[in-house]
Design a protein around this nucleic acid. Structure first.
Lengths: 246, 246
DNA sequence: CGAGCGGTTGAGGCATGTCAAGAGTTGTGG
DNA sequence: CCACAACTCTTGACATGCCTCAACCGCTCG
């Protein structure tokens, strides 16, 4: 592994507390790889051989069944994904596809599994990471089951504004098509919903989001810590859709 | 803690591999409590003070928002719940309510958190448990987003048959009202859907499920390991709805 | 017995998906 | 540099899945 990539990875909560020698061991067993945009780097069902760490670019995690598919998450630098599959030495549950040119660190799953038996601090970090990831998916599931599509869109828009520091205007980080899939609806429906939300305090101009009446929007969304976070997920970078997916 | 309850707990994957002395420490700090049916033992948002272990009875985990609620899981003996909240020392994401008279072991969260720093085997067990729980929720989320309500009902019915050993007939373990909520639909709709499924190989007579044409039902469901399990969740007892919820 | 509750059934309405067409944008190759 | 293809996004018309409301049955339990 090229040592210049180490520092960013070392700062992740997952690796922050482990012994330097152990971290080095993991890194020498790993390697960096670059993928072109739109490439399917993992197919769901494949055996989980590597923990993936996104250094640059972005990766979409999608679930597939019976010819249908839906976006489960978007992973952005610097964070990890499919930790749980590696730990259980089980098949990936989601397909991973690059959204743009992406650089990834691949850490062999077997080394990973051996490491948390050697390094107690690392084991604790893995525990915390997994617990955070678990809670993140539960919140997601709650959102899907308790809110209708309009409420999900509104809460997404408001949350992104908060993540950006409470700004009144920002630009969407993902294509609307993808966002629709993530929110569990069709692109056509998202388009219509976005327009209808102008009556509730958000205006959309292309990829630009302008919050025109925060009070009104907040009233509609009824933000809830037990759905919309926090639980500052381990290596959150404040970007993207959810935060980290194990 | 009464020592007669120890063996069942000790057999859980979560506690199986830890040192006996450490297990004893955890148990002496814990205590058993019995709850009447329909009691709300945990309210979502409360601080997570105790890991819960169901010894007898059953517990419903529900998510709530804006006056609505939905069943996220049903926990049956012997298994644990809300492990993740305890580990992160964060508020419970779900409300827990007994479905019948239920005996619960309460393990102080602080002891738990201290213990996986002392006992490496326990730490590994927690890692495995959390990873399994995580994957379980992801599968659940995939099911909700990729299948329509009819497909979810059919897959549930078929899966329960498989869990019971591939039997052609069995009785539902939960009320239909609750099942509807778990599957993300209204009771009325579940009722209609169940009737309509007679054309696809399952007949329902009260709480009795009779699979009349397994081939046909299987064709409809298109069972998928990446949605319907396995990943033999840690302390699965082969009963109830999902299996274990962290 | 009567109240309460779970389950079923029907009628009607809203939300969401489907299909189709067109505008705008991006990327590519001649 | 332009032409073209491919793609996203939007909009409209239409179909349908799912929910709501209401009534009724049967069961359980005080």
């Amino acid at each position: 592994m090229r040592p210049d990539t180490d520092p960013q990875i070392r700062h992740l909560h997952l690796f922050r507390d482990m012994a330097q020698a152990h971290f080095a061991d993991l890194m020498t067993a790993s390697y960096v790889q670059a993928f072109p945009p739109g490439l399917e780097m993992i197919r769901q069902g494949d055996p989980a051989d590597f923990l993936h760490i996104v250094l640059e670019g972005s990766v979409e995690l999608v679930g597939q069944w019976a010819g249908r598919e839906c976006t489960m998450a978007v992973v952005r630098p610097v964070s990890t994904f499919i930790l749980a599959a590696c730990i259980r030495d089980a098949p990936y549950l989601m397909t991973a596809r690059t959204l743009e040119r992406t650089r990834i660190v691949l850490v062999p799953a077997s080394d990973l599994r051996a490491m948390f038996r050697r390094d107690a601090e690392f084991a604790v970090a893995v525990i915390n990471e997994l617990a955070a990831c678990y809670r993140s998916v539960v919140r997601n599931a709650k959102s899907m089951k308790l809110r209708n599509s309009r409420e999900r869109v509104a809460s997404y828009l408001l949350r992104q504004s908060m993540l950006a520091g409470g700004v009144p205007t920002y630009t969407l980080a993902v294509e609307k098509r993808l966002l629709a899939s993530y929110l569990g609806m069709t692109p056509e429906n998202l388009s219509r919903t976005l327009k209808s939300l102008e009556a509730d305090g958000v205006k959309i101009d292309g990829a630009r989001v302008i919050i025109t009446d925060r009070t009104r929007l907040t009233a509609l969304v009824q933000p809830d810590k037990l759905i919309d976070g926090p639980d500052p997920v381990a290596d959150s970078t404040g970007s993207g859709l959810p935060l980290t997916y194990g």
